[in-house]
Design a binder for these strands. Structure first.
Lengths: 226, 226
DNA sequence: CGCGGCTTTGATGTTCATCAAGTAAAGTGG
DNA sequence: CCACTTTACTTGATGAACATCAAAGCCGCG
């Protein structure tokens, strides 16, 4: 295995704290895995043995209830840890993770990470900061969605992908209408209707999966107003 | 100041990792503060300088938007850290914390905690676990509420206080109907109507602020079904 | 005592889920 | 490669769920 940690983006962001021998140790136990679109990275109920972060691609976290309905928790992009949630507080994953597009994840043995936390104060500090940041993002997004109504929710999602994921007002929506509905807790039909309305009102243009935001201000107002 | 850390419940749960000299150090920088009901512990926008945990009482975390509307994020009970959210990822609090009943908090200097994380691997591990657990609870509760509708949401809240807070099916609701509405994102009137319906259907008994759950099974079904 | 906030109920209109039915797109086996 | 199946998307119609407005009783507090 080629250990290219030194130019791994993740390393420069979070792992500056490593001493050389630690870096090597962490490198050796690391495995890089390619994950094709739609494939699972984590399955709900599985035992937590790894510590996973996303190197390339885009993923969704979601949970499935007993009746088979699934609810999307959040999305993850490169630099995000895949298995942040619960890994320090649970034995088993209480959510699944699935690749939305072809992705690459790096997998560390979880015990290795635990050891690093104990023995490297700077690493522990960095990780804590990152976890706090990651959870915060999810919490605030979920709270935003909770207090909005249909139109505001859909506008929020469209802006989310533009600003947080693609940093571009034109993008190919990586999820289906159904998945949007599983994220915001509304019916598929009404998600579609809302997108159609935005299109008719010339706030966005829609070509299949491609979304182009034309009137960002108006969309932002709809999102803010709820 | 009397340093009674050794019999502080928090200590036995999280701080077993302390060596004696660290324990003393942490004790000396700690301040115990009584907070009467309705008083603020943290104000949104204030700089993060402290690390606060709840020794006695009950608190609510909430955020206020520009238009003055407030949204409840979560509730905290003894043993919970008050200032978990954001403290490692932000400079300023993006939420407020208010005592719901007379409470007692313990305040540590934030830099002291940061030092402890760096220098005590066991402490870092314990804290990480606790933070992960705390965030998880909030995320899952919020997601639960998001996917339910009015009746399910209200049932969820009533069960939440019975199971998670009071561990009793009869309790004095520590929040107003309006606050329930700010937590679940529905109108006050409909929260009240729903509680009245539950009362008429003999699922609960209501005497002002006092709630007594009579038919827990039915209430649970309503909550589960959404 | 009176004011303001909380609670409650009713009436009304808006928002939303659900059902139905059809079209487009994407996978599947021969 | 085509017929077939399945899945995603779309629109309309209907009734249920919900917000909002209005009005009145209640309670704590200055």
């Amino acid at each position: 295995m080629i250990c290219n940690c030194s130019n791994c983006a993740l390393k420069t962001v979070f792992f500056d704290s490593f001493k050389d021998e630690e870096l090597e140790f962490y490198c050796e136990s690391r495995v890089e895995v390619k994950v094709p679109a739609k494939e699972f990275i984590i399955k709900q109920g599985a035992e937590i043995k790894d510590f996973i972060y996303l190197k390339e691609g885009l993923i969704k976290l979601f949970r499935t209830s007993d009746n088979g309905k699934s609810q999307i928790i959040s999305f993850g992009k490169p630099m995000d840890f895949v298995s942040i949630q619960s890994v320090f507080s649970e034995k088993k994953y209480n959510y699944s993770v699935q690749a939305l597009i072809d992705s690459v994840v790096c997998v560390l043995d979880f015990n290795t990470v635990k050891d690093l936390i104990k023995n490297n104060g700077n690493f522990a500090t960095s990780l804590l900061k990152q976890i706090s940041f990651s959870y915060d993002r999810i919490t605030m997004n979920t709270l935003d969605i909770l207090q909005k109504r249909l139109y505001g929710k859909v506008a929020h999602v469209l802006i989310y992908f533009a600003d947080q994921v693609y940093e571009n007002d034109e993008y190919s929506l990586p999820i289906s209408r159904k998945e949007i509905s599983e994220y915001i807790g509304m019916s598929v039909e009404n998600v579609i209707r809302t997108i159609s309305e935005f299109r008719k009102d010339k706030i966005i243009k829609v070509y299949g999966k491609t979304i182009e935001i034309i009137d960002k201000k108006k969309l932002q107002i709809i999102s803010d107003r709820g």
